[in-house]
Nucleic acid binder design. Structure first.
Lengths: 235, 235
DNA sequence: TACCATAGTGTCGATAATACACTTAGAAAG
DNA sequence: CTTTCTAAGTGTATTATCGACACTATGGTA
């Protein structure tokens, strides 16, 4: 049995609880995926939800997001950025809870999703086949998706969804999935190679049943150099 | 004398306090202004700070921002948008306080800034002549300024800084101040009028010592119609 | 009536965006 | 080993957009 909680932290005015929730995006051959957790506790027990949890009073928001992500999904060292803070009154049935939402980008190949430590399920869902989500997490997910769509065009964050070395075909496919429109192969290559922010490697892809494509990597240094010179990334 | 506070709100775990802070921008003939409040209470007593305050447990974040703005500056019914949530550990010397920052845009002509209700000063400061700010408010202000610069180019929010009816000269000046670069008059007019989101009125400006310019207004309906058709505003 | 300040207007060249189809390489199947 | 299949890789011509640039018109002030 659980002990009765000792409510020893006392304040003059009532306080909302503060949580973080993280929308983790990944990409596979078909489309965008998002990581969800099956809740093992009430409320919304058994329903799918975004990974997240309470912010400790002695940690920053970013720290809380990374900690929860590690605890619940095993993911670490990934791209993570604050999205928006959701503070509607009835968003949690228990009490007033304000949540700082984050979104994260991972490449599926580099990061295994481990069974979470508290025995609840973690799984990838296609954005087109989402289950019903707990709390206001559908709203948060939608906001994250819109942010990603908007930001990927003028900031080179999309590379976070790809392995370190990728083909131009993979890069184009990533943009096509996120922007939800087809791009012309020749124009796309012309543009990307013209920006000089991807570096050709001397490797080609392996284990494909057709001509193997050359592998490239994102050139962070070149990008930063160009940025300082007023260069403006845009797809 | 103030009574000793009765700390009757009790929780199992310690909780951060939650505040809102608002960066209010306005525009005059010269440059961008921001509204600051002179603090009447400790900490940072007598220093300038952003308007803001504690979020009540029974109000949304947006509501808290609008309420604080009204209480401290008299401003209401203005453009207000969430900016970012700041949660560094030592950002407030008293205790752990997380703040949800907002930014707001007002036109100086339409809104008088009243003396604030709790007798502290409220005043406009030019962005180039800022005093030292309390807490991490300089960081928040910088983030708001960057957001405004980034967003004004592809969302028609800049009109919020102008009176309902404005000249194309005022519109261009607004963009020049925010983007911090000069724009070509003919190209600017061509672009703005070509987008068909400003509506010509039959009025001209008054009390100017030279040829009076035609007044225009932002056409919200036309903008929404165009947006749905995939039109992409950009200056 | 002259002067001053800003309003208002068009063209041309450069650059960027778009549309579009075939050859090549390499693995797999027969 | 020859054919087949799949995706890689490549260039040009057209169109649209961007950016540079200078003079006349209007109305108030001196």
């Amino acid at each position: 049995m659980r002990n009765k909680p000792t409510k020893k932290y006392q304040y003059e005015y009532p306080r909302a609880a503060l949580t973080v929730d993280i929308v983790v995006f990944a990409l596979d051959e078909e489309d965008l995926k998002v990581m969800l957790i099956e809740r093992s506790l009430k409320p919304y027990q058994g329903q799918w939800a975004l990974p997240g949890g309470f912010v400790h009073v002695d940690e920053t928001l970013d720290h809380a997001a990374r900690r929860e992500l590690l605890e619940e999904t095993g993911l670490k060292d990934i791209f993570l950025e604050q999205l928006f803070t959701f503070g509607e009154l009835e968003r949690d049935p228990r009490e007033r809870i304000v949540t700082v939402a984050y979104y994260a980008l991972v490449n599926l190949e580099g990061h295994d999703v481990q069974a979470s430590t508290d025995a609840s399920n973690a799984a990838w869902f296609s954005l087109s086949e989402l289950p019903e989500l707990a709390f206001d997490h559908a709203t948060i997910l939608k906001a994250a998706h819109e942010r990603l769509r908007g930001k990927v065009r003028y900031q080179p964050i999309g590379f976070e969804l790809l392995p370190e070395k990728f083909t131009l075909r993979q890069l184009q496919h990533m943009y096509e999935v996120i922007l939800d429109r087809e791009l012309d192969k020749r124009n796309f290559r012309k543009k990307v190679l013209g920006m000089e922010i991807v570096q050709e490697t001397d490797e080609i892809e392996k284990d494909v049943a057709h001509r193997a494509a050359r592998l490239y990597r994102f050139d962070q240094k070149a990008y930063q150099r160009l940025s300082k010179q007023g260069f403006h990334f845009e797809i």
